[in-house]
Simulated scan of single mutants.
Amino acid sequence: MRRLVFLLALAFAAPLTAQTALPPAPYANQQLADPAQERKAHELMLTIRCVTCQSQSIADSDASMAADLRSEIRVRIAAGEQPEQIRAWLIERYGDWISYRPTAEPITWPLWAAPILLLAGGGVLVLGRIRRRRRNA
């Protein structure tokens, strides 16, 4: 019985001790000194999806993962990397899903073409109906 109580206490206590003791990332919530660099970093952050929240950009998210990504972006911008290089690195690391800016890779061409084809098909149907009505009238 004591063993069962000990195991239950351990099971409930484990999540309480699971919090990280790591300090926050250095530039997670601190802006860069150069306003131009900070603007570049912020514009990029607005187009990167939070891995934890999945519905917010990392600029808007309070998740620790978003803070780490904000810091990483600021460090790389301060080191002179261009935003598109950082975006490519993030896409390589996390996949296309992380970017709010869609890519036009050959695998996504059907997704880009589908709305155009559907509109064209709808236009053909509407024109056909209009011609049939004119003939029947």
Score class of each variant (00 low, 15 high):
V51S: 07
D34P: 00
A88C: 02
Q30W: 01
L10G: 10
A11C: 13
S61P: 12
R76T: 01
V5I: 14
Y94Q: 07
E81D: 12
A14F: 12
A14L: 14
W97K: 09
V126N: 00
A21P: 11
A137N: 05
F12P: 00
P24G: 07
P35A: 07
A59V: 00
P115Q: 01
L10T: 10
L90D: 04
R70D: 10
H42I: 03
A18P: 01
L4A: 08
D62Y: 14
M65P: 04
P83V: 01
A14W: 15
K40Y: 00
T108P: 07
D68N: 08
A63L: 09
R135C: 10
T108K: 05
I130Q: 11
I91Q: 09
D34T: 02
R2F: 14
T108C: 05
C50G: 06
M1D: 08
R74H: 09
Q54I: 06
R70C: 07
A11Q: 14
L22E: 12
G123R: 05
L8Q: 13
A21M: 11
W97V: 04
S71A: 12
R133H: 05
R74T: 07
I58K: 01
A104F: 12
I130C: 07
I73S: 04
S61G: 08
E105C: 05
V124D: 01
P35V: 01
G123E: 00
T20A: 10
A120H: 02
I107E: 12
P115S: 05
G80H: 08
R93D: 05
Q37D: 06
E81C: 03
P106I: 15
L10Y: 13
R49Y: 01
A67Q: 15
M1P: 03
P106S: 14
M1L: 13
A79Q: 11
I86Q: 08
R76V: 00
W89Q: 08
A137G: 10
A9C: 15
Y94R: 08
D68Y: 06
T103C: 06
R2W: 14
V126T: 08
A33K: 11
A114L: 09
Q30R: 13
A63Y: 13
L22P: 00
I116A: 04
I91V: 11
A36L: 03
A113K: 04
A14E: 12
C50K: 03
L111M: 06
R132V: 06
I98S: 04
A66M: 09
D96E: 13
I58F: 12
M45V: 05
G122L: 14
W97F: 10
L10F: 15
A36S: 03
R39C: 00
A36C: 01
D68W: 06
T108S: 11
L111H: 06
R3P: 10
S71M: 12
W89Y: 12
L4Y: 09
L22W: 02
E72R: 01
L46P: 07
